[in-house]
Amino acid sequence: MPIILRRLAVLFAIAGCLSACLVAALVVVSIAGRSLMSAPIQGDVELTQFGIALAIALCLPWAQLHGSNIIVDFFTQRAGERTLRRLDAFGSLLLALMTGVLAWRTAVGAISVRDSFETTMILGLPMWITYAVLAPGLALTALIALVQMKLHLAGEQATA
């Protein structure tokens, strides 16, 4: 696996974890404010949805790099090494196609939402930002999956 993809996956995962931690702190403060002072953080649900979506999208490349996705191998337990490599390559190709399409459509959606000036209900934040920040994580996941497909077909180790 190229070192640049590993480093990008690490940086994305760190950013995703920071996003999740910030969301956790936001939720704690909002719940405490609601319980103690009847004053939750305005827009906490909007911010939580955005932060968790961001965390997931940014952590996907790391999960793919390490082969942490769910694999159902019930039907392939007795398959040979060559067959398994081909199936893993095919699975990587399918994932690359899916996340590539998601990255593309998310980016197109961001442009469309930006052009329509759509905002969130409570805070009035521009919605296009939410879409735009998801695309890089999805694109990097697609790129990693494509490289893994090549490695599977070459018989090399495809996960970190």
Rank of each mutant, 00 (worst) to 15 (best):
Q42H: 12
S38Y: 12
A79C: 08
T120A: 09
Q49P: 06
M127S: 15
G51M: 01
L22N: 12
L54Q: 05
W104I: 09
I14K: 03
A96L: 03
R114H: 12
A24N: 10
R82F: 10
M149S: 08
L143P: 05
V28D: 11
A139H: 02
T99Q: 07
S30K: 01
G43L: 08
A57E: 02
A145T: 04
F74G: 07
A132Q: 09
I129E: 09
V10G: 01
V147R: 07
A110N: 06
I52D: 07
V23P: 07
A96W: 03
A55V: 04
F50W: 12
Q77Y: 00
V27S: 11
S19M: 14
A89K: 00
V72Y: 09
G67W: 07
G67C: 02
A96M: 03
R82N: 14
I3A: 12
I111L: 12
A55M: 10
P2G: 03
L153C: 07
R78L: 05
C59F: 11
A57R: 06
R114T: 00
A57Y: 12
G91E: 00
D88F: 07
V28A: 15
F50E: 00
L60Q: 10
M127Q: 15
A158E: 02
M149A: 15
P136C: 00
G137W: 07
T48Q: 04
W128M: 04
S116R: 08
L125Q: 10
G91S: 06
P126L: 01
L18K: 10
R105F: 15
R105Y: 09
L125D: 05
V45E: 14
I71S: 12
P2I: 02
P40K: 08
L47P: 10
M127N: 11
L153V: 15
E46V: 12
I111C: 01
Q49C: 13
R34A: 15
D44G: 06
Q64R: 02
E46A: 10
E46T: 09
W62A: 05
V45I: 15
M127H: 07
L102M: 12
A79F: 14
H152F: 14
A24S: 14
V23R: 01
A63L: 11
G80A: 08
L54P: 07
A154T: 15
Q77D: 11
Q42L: 04
F12H: 10
D44K: 05
L97N: 13
V101H: 12
T48Y: 10
L143Y: 12
A135I: 11
L97D: 11
A32Q: 14
L58V: 07
L65T: 08
A25G: 13
F90N: 09
F90M: 06
L36Y: 14
A55W: 09
A53P: 03
T106F: 06
V45H: 02
I71P: 09
L140W: 08
D115S: 05
L94C: 10
S116M: 01
G67T: 01
G124K: 00
N69T: 06
M1D: 08
V27D: 05
L146D: 12
V72L: 05
A135H: 10
I111V: 05
V27F: 11
Q42I: 13
W128K: 01
V28R: 00
A24F: 14
D73C: 00
L47H: 01
A15W: 04
L138Q: 13
